[in-house]
Amino acid sequence: MKIIVPIKQVPEVAEVKINPETGTLIRDGVPSILNPFDEYAVEAAIQLKEKFGGEVTVITMGPPQAKDALLKALAMGADRAVHLTDRAFAGADTWATAYTLAVQIKKMEFDMVICGKQAIDGDTAQVGPELAELLGVPQICYVRHLEVSEDQKFVIAHRETDDGYEVIKAKLPVLLTATKGLNEPRLPNIMGIMKAKKKPMDVIDAATLGVPEDEIGLKGSPTTVRKVYPPPRRSGGIKIEDMDPKEAAKKLVEFLASKGAI
């Protein structure tokens, strides 16, 4: 079974802070990590390989340092990596990202593509379905349980919905997006980390990939960011300190009653 896992390196957004004076993001010293949802995808792919045999390829489009994310996935147990990296890819929105990935993936063989549900920096959850469309395969998103039939012809996946989940069957090849609960991603061990450095990694630029310049990066992106700013904050109102709880509760209930809230 040949499985391709698109992964993304993201900043640890929990550690991103806003500079209160300038209202800008402080990213210095914020570590880069493998997108957490992509860890579920990598783990799922490795488990399938362990069961059915085959090969897991991880692929990323990103700056040179995104190599670390690929190495982590290789250390977990992926077999090979593809790194699409070129200044010309910069500024890509989800469409241009999906397009660039699709051009490369179409050159490869696959039975399954497993993405993360979303990347935690942008939280869009769009690259998976867009990639599925460009590859011409069906998609099942938000997968939290996955089985492949013994003959390796079908998947049965539990797809999260707003009200619970659906059990969905589809024929391979298919694209899935992985969400929390699918598995417990393994931590790479020392052996894995050593081996990772020796596994094959193809580094591919825009010319080698053979994509027209106006289809990639900022130029290939139908959306543009006009402006970014810190979220508006509503301002506080009454604040009671050092008051007997009974007294405070009374004041609150009077306030709520006066507003017609209760």
Partner: peptide
């Protein structure tokens, strides 16, 4: 919102 809600982004589809 983007970056875990730390910033807001205004996005256009000009083309």
């Amino acid at each position: 919102p983007a970056f875990g809600g730390n910033i807001m982004a205004e996005i256009l589809c000009p083309y």
